[in-house]
C-alpha cells in the first residue's frame, strides 16, 4: 500500500502546482480583457476623475504583480475578495450593509451547479456504461449500430437544440416536467429534483456518447486476450465474460473519460443554464465577464480549474486502484 500512497501524494503535489500555474494564467488573461470595471459601470458619463476614484477604491491602480499576490494570498486563506458590483452598489446607496464577498455570492450558485452535475451523473454514468456493455456484447448488430447512431447524433447536436426538443416533448406536448428550472434556496429536494430534470436529461444526452463509446471500445479491446478466451472456454455466458472478466480490466480508460465528462458538467453548462433559466455558476460567470467584475470572474475560473484538476486526480487514483498489481504488491 505504501507505493500507492506515495503515488497519490505525488499526484496531489503535482495538482497543486498545476493550480498555481493556472492561477497565473487566469490572472493574466483576465487582466488582458479590454475595458475595465470603472469604465463599464460609469458608462458614457465617465469623467477621468470618477474613473480614477473608483479604480483607487477597488485597488485597480496597484501594479499587477502586487494585485496578483494580494489575490493569491487571499484565495489561499479562502478569501476570494469582494465583488466589484456589490462594493460599488453599497457605496452608491451610502448604506454600507457590509459588502457581499465573492464567496457568499458564488456559494449558492456553485451548490446549484453541483446539484445539477450530480443528478446528471447519477443518470448518465450508469446509463452510458450499461449501453457500452450491451453494445460490446451485441457488437456489430443492429442494436450496436443504433446505439452508436443515437449517441453520436445527440453529442453532435447543439445543446440548446436538444434542450428545446426535450422541452417540446416533455414539457409542452406531454407536460411531465416543468420547462423552467427556477430553483431557489430552501426548496424541498423532490421539487428541486423535478425542476432540474430537463436540464439534467439534456446534459445526459450530451455526455453519454463519450462514456458509452469508451466503455465499448475498452471492453472490445480486451476480448482478444488469453484470459477472455479462457473464460469462454470455461463455458461462461457471454454476459458474464464481459461483466466479470473484461470490465474490471477495462476500468482505467473508462474512469478517465467519466472524469472528463463530469468536469464538463461543472464547467461547461452555460448554454443549458440559460435555456432553462437555471441559477448555476455558469450564468454568474458570463454575467460577471460582461460587466468586468474581475474578482468573480477570477474566482469562477479558479473553481473551474480546481474542479478539473480534482476530478482528473480522482480518476488517476481510481485507475491506479483498479490495478490489482498496485493494490496487492508481491
Amino acid at each position: 500500500m505504501g507505493s500507492v500512497l506515495k503515488i497519490i501524494l505525488q499526484r496531489l503535489a503535482l495538482g497543486f502546482l498545476t493550480l498555481l500555474i493556472v492561477s497565473v494564467v487566469i490572472f493574466t488573461a483576465v487582466n488582458l480583457l479590454p475595458g475595465d470595471f470603472a469604465q463599464s459601470i460609469l458608462g458614457q458619463g465617465a469623467t477621468p476623475e470618477a474613473v480614477a476614484s473608483i479604480r483607487a477604491d477597488l485597488g485597480l491602480d496597484q501594479p499587477p504583480v502586487t494585485r496578483y499576490f494580494q489575490w493569491l494570498g487571499g484565495a489561499l486563506q479562502g478569501d476570494l475578495g469582494t465583488s466589484f458590483a456589490q462594493a460599488n452598489f453599497a457605496s452608491f446607496t451610502g448604506t454600507d450593509s457590509g459588502a457581499t464577498t465573492v464567496a457568499q455570492q458564488i456559494a449558492p450558485r456553485f451548490q446549484n451547479t453541483m446539484f445539477l452535475a450530480m443528478v446528471t451523473a447519477a443518470i448518465a454514468v450508469p446509463f452510458a456504461i450499461t449501453l457500452g456493455i450491451l453494445a460490446a456484447l451485441y457488437r456489430n448488430t443492429v442494436f450496436d449500430r443504433a446505439t452508436n447512431i443515437f449517441t453520436l447524433t445527440s453529442i453532435s447536436s447543439p445543446e440548446f437544440f436538444l434542450a428545446y426538443i426535450l422541452i417540446l416533448f416533455l414539457a409542452v406536448l406531454n407536460p411531465i416536467f416543468p420547462s423552467l428550472s427556477n430553483i431557489f434556496e430552501g426548496m424541498p429536494f423532490s421539487e428541486r429534483l423535478e425542476k432540474s430534470m430537463l436540464p439534467a436529461l439534456t446534459l445526459t444526452l450530451v455526455v453519454t456518447a463519450h462514456m458509452m463509446r469508451m466503455t465499448r471500445a475498452a471492453i472490445i479491446n480486451l476480448l482478444a486476450s488469453p484470459y477472455i478466451e479462457m473464460a469462454r472456454l470455461k463455458g461462461l455466458s457471454p454476459m458474464r465474460v464481459i461483466v466479470k472478466h473484461a470490465l474490471p480490466n477495462a476500468l482505467a480508460p473508462i474512469i478517465n473519460v467519466i472524469a472528463l465528462n463530469l468536469a464538463y458538467l461543472i464547467t461547461g453548462v452555460v448554454v443549458v443554464e440559460v435555456v432553462f433559466v437555471y441559477p448555476g455558476i455558469g450564468q454568474l460567470f458570463v454575467d460577471s465577464v460582461k460587466i468586468r467584475d474581475i474578482p468573480i470572474v477570477q474566482a469562477c475560473c479558479l473553481i473551474f480549474a480546481t474542479a478539473f484538476i480534482l476530478l482528473n486526480l480522482t480518476a488517476d487514483i481510481m485507475s491506479i486502484l483498479s490495478n490489482p498489481r498496485l493494490r496487492h504488491p508481491k
Binding site: P248, N249, P324
Partner: peptide, 16 residues
C-alpha cells in the same frame, strides 16, 4: 471439456 493454456500468466484474469 477443459483447457489449459500455454501462458498461465496471460490466461488467468489479473483482476481476480
Amino acid at each position: 471439456i477443459a483447457y489449459v493454456a500455454q501462458s498461465a500468466a496471460a490466461s488467468f484474469n489479473p483482476a481476480h
